[in-house]
Design a protein around this nucleic acid. Sequence first.
DNA 1: AAAGTCTACGACAGCCCGTAGTAGCGCGCA
DNA 2: TGCGCGCTACTACGGGCTGTCGTAGACTTT
Lengths: 124, 124
Amino acid sequence: MARPGELERRILDLLWARGELSVREVRGLLGDDLAYTTVMTVLDRLHAKEAVLRRKDGLAWRYRPRQSKEQALADKIVRLVPRDLHDASPLLEAFLDRAEQLDDDALDKLEALIRSRRKERKRC
Amino acid sequence: MARPGELERRILDLLWARGELSVREVRGLLGDDLAYTTVMTVLDRLHAKEAVLRRKDGLAWRYRPRQSKEQALADKIVRLVPRDLHDASPLLEAFLDRAEQLDDDALDKLEALIRSRRKERKRC
DNA sequence: AAAGTCTACGACAGCCCGTAGTAGCGCGCA
DNA sequence: TGCGCGCTACTACGGGCTGTCGTAGACTTT
């Protein structure tokens, strides 16, 4: 086994890439020769954790992500950040570090977001 | 038990607050009535994971964080964010959306980072 | 009715973490 | 000089999470 959670992550990635998949489809896309029930179990657990939604399609369930990859990631990060964090810059730098591709457009958008954030804050 | 890792986190927080502590000191500051060896085991595991450094002081070890709280957080985030993240704006948007903790100060810093990003970009 | 497809449920192993006991080592004190 | 105290190293156990799968039953299709 690689790091724990690896299989769950790979399956989630497939769902993010494809939108909605059945157990059989996920199993095929994974390519490893996992047992059908292995994939089913993982999807079932993801559903129990409310990481994915599912909908009946005939006999079978079809699974889809509950939230976008970005939202999921942002949630994880928010859960990681302690409320008493005093200096946020290392955190923000870590973000921007990862984002080589931030073009001017994206930077504009972010600034706009910050401004609207400020306004909102003032109102409350 | 609360969430797994809880005790480790509390102990790390103590080290970040106090700088350097012995097992006995940590145990006292925790306040729970944990066995001495419980605290020792956790510190030992943190050391094995290289989350803390230690130095002999007479018979005993004294433990201190390997990195600042902010750096540790940034590292965790970097590990969480995939390297193939092409467009960071959705993520940052999602983050700004979720992060009620971000105070004005943090927003200022983010703006400053964006500005310096812009400048850097122009230069290249 | 038989064969195939799905699901629900149970199971087991391995890792991580909280929690703790035991054994042994070194130092200072009676 | 030997004893007790403090500290460490090692071992252990239980519970939760994850990867992995088997079995049993239900429904569909042929």
